[in-house]
Amino acid sequence: MLTLTANQWNLVYNVFSFGLVSMLACTIYTLVSQARVLPKYRNALVMSSMVTFIAGYHYWRIFNSFSESSEGMAVKVSGDQGAFNEAYRYVDWLLTVPLLLVEVIAVLALAKEVSKSLIMRLVPASAAMIALGYPGEISNDQNTQILYGVLSTLPFLYILYVLFVELGKSLDRQPEGVAATVGRLRLLLIATWGVYPVSYILGMGEGMASADQFVGVQVGYTIADVLAKCVFGLTILKIARMKSMAEGMKDDH
């Protein structure tokens, strides 16, 4: 059992609640915004809604897991039955991170061959990044944590290469303002994804994590999720709107 102060327990409880409602609100907003973009860009919004819906479901499970594993201010984190389940996050990321990358490609409406090439490289790399991070997350051995932290960084660097070098070649053909917005989108991706390794490092160390480490990791991961999924999804909507307007859609909504 890991004993938290009342403030720490309430902070984690409230940040999970914030993550849950953010995902649900963003899901509804992107779904009802379908009519505001041309049909060719609606797949990107559907994927954005899927990302936040999947994340909302997992935040509901995380929220319940935290409540059920708590006895007063103490949280069971041993990994046994009834303990707080960190695996929900990794199942969520394994599903949502590839979709986040496909969103970017879908909203740009690139040539079919270019889109397929980018997806075939980005999706496996993103899945490898998440899968390689999990063994380090659940380990209490610092050497194992470092090893898998480094291994999961390699596909992350490859993803950045594809996004900035390969995808960058296609931006010159985008409408005015779209290339700049996509540039900001990629920077948002780096900034938010950069929070994950910081939170991962906060949880590193021999033996069971301390209360401060546990709180830091959970708060860091949740804030990063909201930025990487909700803010990212709203930016995808903005790009879809910009492209729709550039292609003659009237702003009636």
Rank of each mutant, 00 (worst) to 15 (best):
N14L: 10
S17E: 14
F18S: 10
L24S: 06
A25F: 10
I28N: 04
L31I: 13
Y41A: 05
R42Y: 02
R42H: 07
R42A: 07
N43P: 00
M47L: 15
S48V: 10
A55S: 14
Y59H: 09
W60Y: 14
F63E: 13
S69D: 06
M73T: 15
K76Y: 10
K76R: 13
Q81V: 14
Q81K: 14
G82F: 04
G82A: 12
L94Y: 13
V97Y: 06
A109W: 00
L118W: 01
P124Q: 09
M129D: 04
Y134P: 04
P135C: 10
E137H: 13
S139F: 00
T144L: 01
L147N: 02
G149K: 01
S152N: 12
F156W: 13
Y158F: 12
L160I: 13
V162F: 00
L167C: 04
R173C: 05
E176H: 05
V178H: 09
V182K: 02
G183K: 09
L185C: 07
L189M: 13
L189T: 11
I190R: 03
I190Y: 06
I190C: 13
T192A: 15
Y196P: 02
P197V: 11
S199R: 05
Y200L: 07
G205Y: 01
G207T: 05
A209Y: 00
V217Q: 02
Y221V: 15
D225Q: 11
A228F: 11
A228P: 01
K229A: 12
T235W: 02
I239T: 08
A240T: 07
M245F: 06
G248F: 06
M249I: 09
